[in-house]
Design a protein around this nucleic acid. Structure first.
Lengths: 355, 355
DNA sequence: AAATTAAATGTGTGCGTACACATTTTAAAA
DNA sequence: TTTTAAAATGTGTACGCACACATTTAATTT
């Protein structure tokens, strides 16, 4: 049919017996077209399958887009370091298309500084923003500022749907907790105790963590026949009683497994298990951080659930670029698969570029 | 630095004090340039970071690329049906860029017809080819034909590295078998038997399957402390003794788990386990086929390893388009992660568009 | 009917690259 | 030195779209 040449605006104009200008006005409905001409053009449009050449469109406009990325300081946290890698990769990928990405980092212990940073971002007048809104209350006024300037923003890691972002990239946290529960439960036949550990310097994403715990508990309500107790810890490594609390937990002879809700906490828990020689306690945690990988390979950690922070950032930026540059709209919510990482498949994840 | 305008060929020409034509000749080294001019241009190139505008480049050439996809008949096999979905998605994705994908299907039971099909493909004079070379010997002459016409080809599913394709998309099969072994071994404390089942109408990808088995066995050689026996079956559902062989296997009271190496065979084995009420035997299989999902959800299948045929095809075509249209080269081998699918994370895989 | 204004339509140019072709410079032959 | 060929370099155009601007046509007003 359509082999060889593609249909161009010019072709439509010829078929409709009008000029390309008129076709252009119809296509983008910017008025100033007579009913007669409109009818002629739409009639042609109905018969043929016109697909605008996105390449040509983009070449014409040829704007240099500036994107701002707001993330927690990657130098003090391995999780956000991975996020940063995603930003760097996106930067490299889109540089040829004239996209620049400026990263703005904030201190996860200093909520109040956040809004100031948002202001600072605005002063650079970016064309779009990607951010990880880990401070709920402090993010809301930032969103308002962005909307006032009608700067589109994409969220990742944590969703705040009521802010109506252009898009969200992340995971279903409740389901993530369920996966954790499933993995910890696998092949456990005797009764005993499971522990859920939230290890974090701050409670900054407690909603985040509690959502996982909720899913974890739901799973057991639905699936468990035998009697199992779930104990719950919210631990701060800076708390003087931190060591004590953990040691006490490990002293429990009936302890069968530990589910750690944070990526950083995973390796902390693992080092305790290692120190006490508790290789038989199943440990489930989050993310492919170097520390975690070490413990996964040595068998202390049994499973890691991959949140793929790198890819979250990468896709967030791609989402924005597609919107700005190609005027292409992607689904407003992209939920990543809940990847289960084991000793045997971990390398296949590390090897492949995107994942 | 580089904010605002990007460096264009025109800019380089001005800086070097030559014309754009000369710069063009240097960039694409098509000769006809004096040593002096060459030096001037390369000197400028060393100082600045020129990145050609891929959009403009593509617009200029503006060829309509025709890609041929060679796959087994998707109407008779759910696995290849998924592959076909990937091709269809790629088709939709690239249609706007003037790329057409023609699918050529072959009968997996008729090896001899394959070379004829390859000939047929060549007659349509495609600009590139993606194929799943499941017939090793029959594929070799096809590759030769493609190379004679210098038509680039990308392989997926099965690799034939010695044919030096433009790229390969697939998985590490040995490691895949290891993952299967790891999952089957998880939490098994008593001694017993594990079975490896190759269920397939034909032995067409036996190398494929044996590679998985090799990895499976290697894992046990390295990890198992307790005594476990591995039994091995190569089954053909069309064989009259098929039922008997399977029933006999299930009669073994020490049987702890089954690892099925094929996607289709997975649901076949599952239906037997269901029929005999053997819910305690761990079953590991391949791929998110509808049949398999049913058994995974009902708990007959414990784990599925996702080969992601859809994405393999999708990426294979993208690889080719990037090569042809954007002259961008991707890594020549893309090994997908070995995704472990469970009851609890399966929906997160089905939901997300790409995975 | 002529003049004025508004509406409708058409024309032209730039975006950055690649490539064909025209022009200039240099080297070799007469 | 002039002629001729070859090498080097420069110029112009197409690719498809968007948008600014020029031109034409229709509707009002004088």
């Amino acid at each position: 049919m359509d082999i060889g040449k593609n249909i161009r605006i010019k072709d439509i104009a010829k078929l409709a017996g009008v000029s390309v200008g008129t076709v252009d006005r119809v296509l983008h409905n910017r008025g100033r077209v007579s009913d007669e001409a409109l009818k002629k053009v739409t009639s042609v449009m109905d018969q043929i399958d016109y697909k605008p050449n996105l390449i040509a469109r983009t070449l014409g406009s040829n704007k240099n887009y500036k994107i701002a990325a707001l993330i927690p300081d990657p130098t003090v946290d391995a999780y956000w370091a991975q996020t940063n890698l995603g930003i760097i990769q996106a930067q490299a990928e889109w540089a040829q298309y004239g996209v620049t990405v400026d990263t703005f980092t904030f201190d996860i212990f200093d909520k109040n500084a956040f809004i100031g940073l948002a202001q600072e971002v605005l002063e650079t007048a970016p064309d779009g923003i990607v951010m990880a809104p880990i401070f709920y209350h402090e993010s809301l006024p930032a969103f308002e500022l962005f909307r006032d300037q009608s700067i589109p923003y994409v969220l990742f890691n944590t969703n705040i749907p009521e802010s109506q972002p252009l898009g969200f990239i992340g995971q279903n946290l409740n389901q993530s907790g369920r996966v954790g529960a499933e993995l910890i439960n696998l092949g456990q036949h005797e009764s005993g105790t499971f522990a859920v550990l939230h290890i974090d310097e701050d409670v900054h994403d407690s909603i985040h963590l509690l959502e996982k715990e909720k899913g974890f508990r739901e799973y057991f309500q639905e699936h468990r026949k035998h009697k199992f107790e779930i104990v719950d810890f919210i631990l701060n490594p800076n708390d003087p009683s931190f060591d004590n609390q953990l040691e006490q937990l490990l002293a429990d002879k009936t302890l069968k497994g530990i589910f750690v809700s944070t990526s950083k906490g995973t390796s902390v828990a693992a080092s305790y298990l290692e120190k006490h020689g508790k290789r038989d306690i199943r440990l489930i945690g989050y993310d492919l951080l170097d520390e975690n990988l070490k413990f996964l390979r040595s068998g202390i950690i049994d499973f890691l659930i991959n949140q793929n922070p790198k890819r979250q950032a990468l896709l967030g930026i791609s989402h924005l670029v597609n919107h700005l540059m190609f005027k292409k709209s992607a689904p407003s919510m992209e939920l990543f698969p809940l990847e289960v990482i084991t000793q045997q498949n971990v390398d296949s994840y590390l090897g492949s570029g995107i994942h």
